[in-house]
């Protein structure tokens, strides 16, 4: 029995040593893009969260206010996940910016899926499919109620308080 315990302890120690040799990127899965989306795919991604309040955020790595507000979305998702809030991110970067996107996601570590807008097509069609009042400015956030209906649009950089206010109103 003692021999078995010793063998178990040795195995755990060996596993710990092996894990310590791994780089952080392989020890913990780095966040990756969940895929690319066009206007139709975006509708499907939101619809898949039916029953939850959905916060759909459009960002880009070149957009400073997008990067500034992103940690608040990460925090919001953690705080409200159990109450039925889903956050979805959509990058408007170009495919050539993929290394920058992955670096940004690795640093931000969101626990929610992020997509990239499919390249090609007229951006105006994509913008108008999201919301006719959206002029294309980034960041831009759309909040959907549990019924899947659009409840609020938030133009420009938000604070944690403004994100929280938008979702709290829909959780009542």
């Amino acid at each position: 029995m003692t021999r078995l315990r010793n063998a178990g302890a040795a195995a755990v120690a060996a596993l710990a040593v092996w894990l310590a040799t791994l780089s952080p990127a392989t020890a913990v899965d780095a966040p990756r893009l969940a895929g690319e989306l066009d206007a139709k795919g975006l509708v499907a991604a939101v619809a898949a969260q039916h029953g939850n309040v959905v916060v759909l955020n459009f960002w880009a790595t070149w957009c400073v206010p997008c990067r500034e507000e992103f940690p608040d979305l990460v925090r919001l998702e953690k705080a409200y996940r159990a109450r039925g809030v889903s956050v979805l991110g959509v990058s408007i970067d170009l495919p050539k910016d993929m290394p920058r996107i992955e670096k940004f996601l690795s640093a931000s570590a969101p626990d929610f899926p992020n997509y990239i807008k499919r390249a090609g097509g007229d951006d105006q069609d994509f913008i108008e499919s999201v919301d006719p009042k959206w002029g294309g400015e980034l960041p831009f956030t759309v909040v959907y109620g549990r019924d899947g209906k659009k409840a609020q649009v938030l133009s420009g950089k938000q604070t944690y308080a403004s994100f929280e206010k938008a979702v709290a109103a829909l959780l009542k």
Binding site: P65, Q124, S155
Partner: peptide, 10 residues
């Protein structure tokens, strides 16, 4: 017409 762009920092 519309296009993506940077928000004007007010």
């Amino acid at each position: 017409t519309k296009a993506f762009g940077c928000t004007i920092k007010r």
